[in-house]
Design a binder for these strands. Structure first.
Length: 954
RNA sequence: GCGGCCGUGAUGGAAUUGGCAGUCAUGCUGGGUUUAGGUCCCAGUGCGCCUCGCGCGCGUGAGGGUUCGAAUCCCUCCGGCCGCACCA
């Protein structure tokens, strides 16, 4: 028998190449817009639409391994499914190509990052095409394209030129604020009229309001990378997320984005998007909204009496104000120098002074010790409380008592006001500190667990919030008997009355540090005049192109040397930096900003440019934006229909992109306040890592299984096995090219989709890939004669059983694909294929075509080929996805299980429409049941027609 | 420490959401096709027991509970993964 028409790897490769060429020639995946350059007049844009997106890749030098395309395959399957459902589907993929790795690779290899990045993208494009991913390539771009980053810079300018109007609850153009100052509707910080301020002073005032602003503040400085980093890029143990270098606090002038202005909206709008609960929780935690109160504690004179200065604290437990028996400031708190007295007050305990002769010495020594501690060390001794008395006292505004003021590193400068009122009886950290320093504790919330009201006898603080306030009355304020919530409200009112503070909301979120000392990023469209005032470039000067330079290497330092300072590569290029420009008031000399934007900038808005990639006039045409992303039924905040990517971007890209989208929404550039409506996190494909006795990974491909004990051996030596990421260093990389060569792209696609649910991680097992290859071979044989390659289907209608199998499969596969449950969809297709295989004889055409259509989104090449050979002229991508006939989805008879006390004792074949009463009678009459009951009386019968009867004997 | 998710055959995983546990696939066993190997095809495959039957018992990390009925809900414990980590 000739095997020339057998489905094998060579034939798969041939089919796949031919159809990929066909799709490209015919523009199969090109999607029309309703208007503009990409409108096509075919009416396709009038169909319902879906915008389906992946998190775009960073093109690394290593190319793709089999773990990378999981999400891309999933969105491609979904996009094909929706296209077959008659949707106008927008699906494409660009490249996130600015950023550190390209620059590091460039420095290592001596190639310019543009050259290596372009080469990497070319490799990626080839590999993605080989997978048969159906993209509208006209809409694909890279963030490094000047045509693209022109608009990244443009958005920066929009953000720079706007401020957050709290009264309006949204961002507005900065001119509105200027007008308010000029008209005197809004007071300047020092009260002088706006007209009297110099240009530099005005710029300074406005900088305090702009959504993008430069400021001197402690930032995360990473000498090992030679750049500063955003909070989101620093790990919990104080190292850089990329490269794992130490990160230090350094006071530097840097650009920031006022993302904190959007904290509430970023939390609130999470309710309107369809995202995994875990990601929403992470964002909420990162933003860290907490309700409480801000209140002032007056400082006390040594001799008694109250000073002018106050210490402001933030607390969420203002109800425990009467229990505040001391205060703690963060070691770096700016007020400390002003409060520390010359000498220790009389009777100061030795334990409080740290053994120092004066408070000043004690504070200086403690600060030094705290600064020297790495975050890792702080973490290790997390619960060990240290601190020192400042020698100063404050006054509890409720009780009037003098309370000592300490500094301790368990209070962080970066959170709240950097100072706390300590209530040791009702906060476990304060409790531990009070124990260590023998500070008084006062119980002001009555314990509900029977421990009594004397904190001296407790093991830990009492924190329950469903209790009542006690011991809290002085002057006109009494909280006694109130529950916690009422007491908080009462204290808030009292604070406001007395002008001591107010109820307030505090956020953990800090502003986003937006500048980097790197070459390979978007240049800031900003210049400084001779007074050092920053000016945004006018739109006509965009894009400000990244200059081509030879010396693009970042200045990096000894990773542990905290005293170093960054140097920007662009600053070396004097002729680029110093320019004469006319910004509207005649030619003047300016210096360019030499920082570049972080690599997140390009990914903050790319969904918008996919919509209208060639628009030279606008970021995106409003009609096109509304068409694809505007608010609609069930999606009040609009956005991309489906966005698939890894969970590692939970608080980075996904938070930043939401923020930019909201600013653009406020400024009227887009109609959708959320960028991504439905987010789906795909799991990771893992692979086994084999290690030798020294713990070094050995090449996974060379490991063999021991015959007798099932262990693993490499080069005759036993090795251990564990699951890990796929990567070069773990020697377990499997390239898609190997799988293409052995089985073809359709098999790889099916295998990745069949491995398990999309959202969980699963181990790659090359030997299991063959299962999906067999499915395709069986399908091929069911449709074609292997000897001739001609269709070998029967033209008669399928029999009843086959019809039912077909329609059940259609029904199930439809639901599964809609819910991204590709693994069970494939199981159902396999089942149907097995059904027609077992039935023997020629497969009826209707069944064969159903199989081809069902598998088309998953294995598009083989589906195209079979569809074509079955005599269809059009691409299967344009065919309608089958719709199940309800009459055949329900079985003619169903098996009803009859249970006695929940154990199956008999099965009955009944009509699906059988009535409960009939079914009960049938069940009670079944011989096996009569036998099993043995004449026992029946106490109860539960009938769930038509599938189950449960009989409970007395 | 706090919060979240998850434990099902040798393996990846199904289970219409409280109603027959183990769909589908890998692996393994046996058989067939083949000069041979591979491919391919067919059958079997949770564990145990026996009188080998359309049989019985056990079985979803462990223990308990709710229910006519629990992989699914509740409680305790064990194990794993992820996030946060002195957040006032």
């Amino acid at each position: 028998m000739s095997e020339t028409h057998r489905y094998d790897a060579a034939l798969a490769a041939d089919i796949e190449a031919r159809w990929q060429d066909y799709w490209e020639r015919h523009g199969t995946y090109e999607t029309p817009n309703p208007t503009g350059e990409l409108a096509d007049g075919t009416g396709r844009a009038d169909r319902p639409k879906k915008f389906i997106m992946d998190m775009f890749p960073y093109p690394s030098g290593a190319g793709l391994h089999v773990g990378h395309p999981l999400g891309y395959i999933a969105t491609d399957v979904y996009a094909r499914f929706q296209r077959m459902n008659g949707h106008n589907v927008l699906h494409t993929l660009g490249f996130d190509a600015f950023g550190l790795p390209a620059e590091q690779y460039a420095v290592q290899t001596g190639t310019h990052p543009r050259v290596s990045t372009e080469a990497n993208m070319k490799t990626y494009r080839t590999q993605l095409r080989r997978l048969g991913l159906g993209y509208d390539l006209r809409r694909s771009f890279a963030t490094i394209d000047p045509d693209y980053y022109r608009w990244t810079q443009w958005i920066f300018v929009q953000i720079f030129n706007s401020w957050y109007d709290r009264d309006a609850g949204r961002a507005r153009p900065i001119e509105v604020l200027v007008a308010q100052f000029a008209a005197g509707e809004r007071a300047t910080p020092d009260g002088r009229p706006w007209a009297e301020l110099t240009a530099a002073e005005r710029a300074d005032v406005l900088s305090g309001h702009r959504l993008a602003y430069a400021s001197d503040a402690p930032v995360n400085w990473c000498p090992g990378l030679g750049t500063v980093l955003a909070n989101e890029e620093v790990t919990a143990d104080g190292r850089s997320e990329r490269g794992n270098f130490p990160v230090f606090k350094a006071k530097l002038r840097q650009w920031n984005m006022r993302i904190t202005a959007y904290a509430d909206r970023l939390i609130d709008d999470l309710d309107t998007v369809d995202w995994p609960a875990a990601i929403k929780i992470q964002q909420r935690n990162w933003i860290g909204r907490s309700e409480g109160a801000r209140l002032d504690f007056p400082l006390a004179h040594a001799a008694g009496g109250v000073r002018e200065e106050t210490v402001t604290v933030f607390t969420t437990r203002q109800d425990t104000l009467f229990g505040a028996t001391y205060m703690v400031l963060a070691p770096e708190h700016p007020l400390i120098d002003a409060v520390v007295p010359e000498s220790w007050p009389a009777d100061t305990r030795q334990a409080w002074t740290g053994g120092h002769a004066t408070p000043r010495d004690a504070v200086a020594a403690y600060r030094k010790q705290a600064a020297a501690k790495s975050d890792l060390e702080r973490q290790a001794e997390a619960r060990e409380k240290t601190g020192v008395f400042t020698g100063a006292f404050a006054v509890n505004p409720a009780t009037g008592e003098r309370i000592p003021v300490f500094i301790a590193d368990y209070v962080l400068l970066g959170y709240g006001t950097g100072a706390i009122m300590a209530v040791p009886a009702h906060d476990s950290r304060d409790f531990a500190f009070a124990r260590a320093f023998e500070l008084p504790m006062r119980c002001v919330v009555e314990p509900t667990d029977g421990r009594g009201t004397d904190p001296a006898a407790w093991d830990d603080s009492f924190n329950a919030k469903d209790a009542r306030i006690v011991n809290s009355a002085a002057g006109e304020l009494s909280l006694d008997g109130l529950d916690v919530a009422s007491a908080k409200a009462r204290v808030n009112a009292w604070l406001a009355e007395r002008g001591l503070g107010e109820g307030t909301v505090n956020f953990r979120l800090r502003d986003w540090l937006f500048s980097r000392q790197r070459y390979w990023g978007e240049p800031f469209p900003v210049v400084y005049d001779e007074d050092g005032v920053a000016h945004a470039l006018p739109e006509s000067m965009l894009p400000l192109e990244l200059p081509e330079v030879d010396d693009y290497a970042p200045r990096t330092f000894d990773p542990d040397d905290a005293d170093t300072r960054p140097e920007t590569p662009l600053s070396r290029n004097e002729e680029w930096v110093n320019v004469t420009l006319d910004l509207g008031d005649g030619p003047k000399k300016y210096r360019r900003e030499t920082n570049t934007m972080p690599n997140w900038a390009g990914s903050c808005w790319y969904q918008l440019r996919y919509l209208d990639p060639f628009n030279a006039e606008k970021l995106v045409d409003p009609e096109i934006e509304r068409y694809w992303m505007g608010p609609r039924e069930g999606m009040p905040t609009g956005g991309v229909d489906l966005y698939v990517g890894g969970a590692e971007h939970a608080v980075l890209h996904l938070l930043y992109a939401r923020f930019w989208q909201k600013v653009l929404f406020d400024l009227g550039h887009v109609s959708s306040p959320e960028p991504y409506h439905k987010l789906y996190n795909q799991g990771m494909i893992q692979a086994y890592v084999y290690r030798d006795s020294r713990g070094f990974p050995v090449p996974a491909a060379e490991v063999e299984v021991e015959e007798h004990d099932g262990g693993w051996v490499h080069a005759g030596e036993p090795v251990t096995r564990e699951l890990g990421k796929i990567g070069k260093s773990l020697k377990n990389v499997v390239s898609p090219d190997e799988i293409f060569a052995a089985y073809g792209a359709d098999t790889l696609r099916l295998y990745e989709m069949a491995m398990g649910p999309l959202d969980v991680s699963r181990p790659w097992e090359t030997r299991a890939v063959v299962g999906q290859y067999r499915l395709l071979q069986r399908l091929w044989r069911n449709v074609l004669d292997e000897a001739t390659g001609e269709p070998a289907v029967a033209e008669e209608a399928p029999d009843e059983a086959t019809l039912r199998a077909m329609h059940k499969a259609i029904d199930g596969v439809r639901q599964d694909l809609e819910q991204l449950r590709f693994n069970t969809a494939i199981a159902k297709i396999t089942e149907l294929n097995n059904h027609v295989t077992k039935a023997g004889g020629r497969v009826p055409r209707e069944a064969a075509e159903t199989l081809v259509l069902l598998i088309a989104p998953l294995a598009p090449h083989v589906a195209e080929e079979l569809w074509h050979r079955l005599g269809h002229e059009d691409s299967v991508t344009a065919a309608d996805f089958p719709v199940a006939d309800p009459a055949f989805v329900v079985d003619e008879t169903v098996t009803c299980v009859v249970q006695i006390r929940g154990k199956v004792r008999a099965r009955l074949e009944v009509a699906p429409t059988v009535s409960e009463a009939d079914l009960e009678a049938l069940a009670l009459g079944a011989p096996a049941i009569v036998d099993a009951l043995g004449g026992d009386a029946v106490r109860k019968v539960i009938v769930r027609a038509p599938k189950l009867v449960n009989i409970v004997p007395a």
